[in-house]
Design a protein around this nucleic acid. Structure first.
Lengths: 208, 208
DNA sequence: CACGCATCTTAACAGTGTAAAGTTAATAAT
DNA sequence: ATTATTAACTTTACACTGTTAAGATGCGTG
């Protein structure tokens, strides 16, 4: 309780790490200031020397999540097209990485898109990290549209693609859909099939 | 504090109504037992005579939400195909209703799919109400597949469709996508264009 | 009338985020 | 080297949360 407690050194990073481990282990509602502080070995209000809020801590956590998500997306996309690392990343690979991240880190994923951090405008770094993630999909979709010569709006197509992948992630995490209900063996297969349907078209003809 | 308070008559419905109005006005985090009780003119713990939990109250609220959502979906689908009320509902119409409900009742929509009610298995009536909603889309997609003679799995196509529509709803509500970023005039247009992309296909050719 | 019972109230508890004020120790200035 | 400044951390306290336990109320039935 002398030097060891005071001037912890890098308390900020320690708090982030504790919060991350509690989040992954026990879910977002267990990430309380007192829990984080106890696990870090510090008083409950020590956090306020390094963060303005609990929300700011969560925003930092969410930002790290988006960075890891983007990384995983490009890794998974690279796996599916090992040859051309220069072209735009493979869309299905990006989707696989997205859903894999969401299901492997469900609590963090909830935090990234949940209402705990509140208004995105308060944390530009968080909005930026999320935008990079969307950018990956947008680039891939745009490249694919150029290749096929389709006249569609790249922005609309990218938005639709992101929506489907994001919807898959949240609905799987909520237990509302699963590979089992589609008579498939794994969620990876479900993602691939859904991407195929999306890219090839469900009815092969425009409606209305 | 005499007869007027005791034996309220239909306190259960009154609590639901109060909770609903608070939810719509001030968001889900303002729906506290004390707020609901105060607005109903009753003590904070009176709720426990009619619900096991706060969660149960929220589950009932969410169930009503799913019922209203399903209703709106069929109404919007009917608007788009006034002729054939007998066939399967129009997919784009269902999607329009879905997104319209989500954006017009964002707090309720959050509650319906959020983590406040917790495990779906605890409330079969809630799961059932959600399943009806999914069933509408599944039927529409299956009918469309039959018409076009496509060999795709109806379950996969329906899951993909629901995912896209649900993703659109949540991402719009989170302020992550909007008609503006797609250079469109309204969210209705965005939904229609996204559905068109989904149904017709983005690249018109299978990938991978 | 009286009993039982569902309904509602009051009081209390453990938990939450956060503000205010006090304590400690490392750093800067003289 | 001593002092002043200041950032980092603790203690205390407050208003709020959901929930439990015990008591009060009055309706319906014997």
């Amino acid at each position: 309780m002398t030097k060891s407690n005071y001037h912890h050194g890098n308390l900020r990073d320690s708090l982030i790490e504790s919060a991350h481990s509690i989040l992954a282990a026990d879910g977002v509602e267990s990430v309380s200031l007192r829990n984080v502080a106890k696990q870090t070995g510090v008083s409950a209000t020590a956090l306020y020397s390094h963060f303005h809020d609990k929300r700011e801590l969560l925003a930092v956590l969410a930002t790290q999540g988006f960075e890891r998500l983007s990384d995983l997306m490009v890794v998974e996309a690279g796996k599916r097209s090992p040859g051309d690392q220069l072209g735009a990343p493979d869309l299905a690979g990006l989707a696989l990485g997205y859903v894999k991240f969401a299901t492997d880190n469900s609590a963090l994923f909830q935090l990234m898109f949940g209402r705990e951090v509140g208004n995105l405008k308060d944390y530009p770094f968080l909005q930026e990290a999320g935008a990079r993630c969307y950018g990956l999909m947008a680039d891939s979709v745009a490249a694919r549209l150029r290749e096929s010569g389709a006249p569609d709006s790249p922005a609309v197509a990218a938005t639709a693609a992101w929506s489907m992948v994001h919807g898959l992630s949240t609905l799987i995490n909520d237990g509302r859909i699963s590979a089992h209900t589609c008579e498939l063996g794994s969620n990876e297969e479900l993602v691939l099939q859904a991407c195929r349907a999306f890219s090839f078209g469900v009815t092969r003809e425009p409606f209305s």
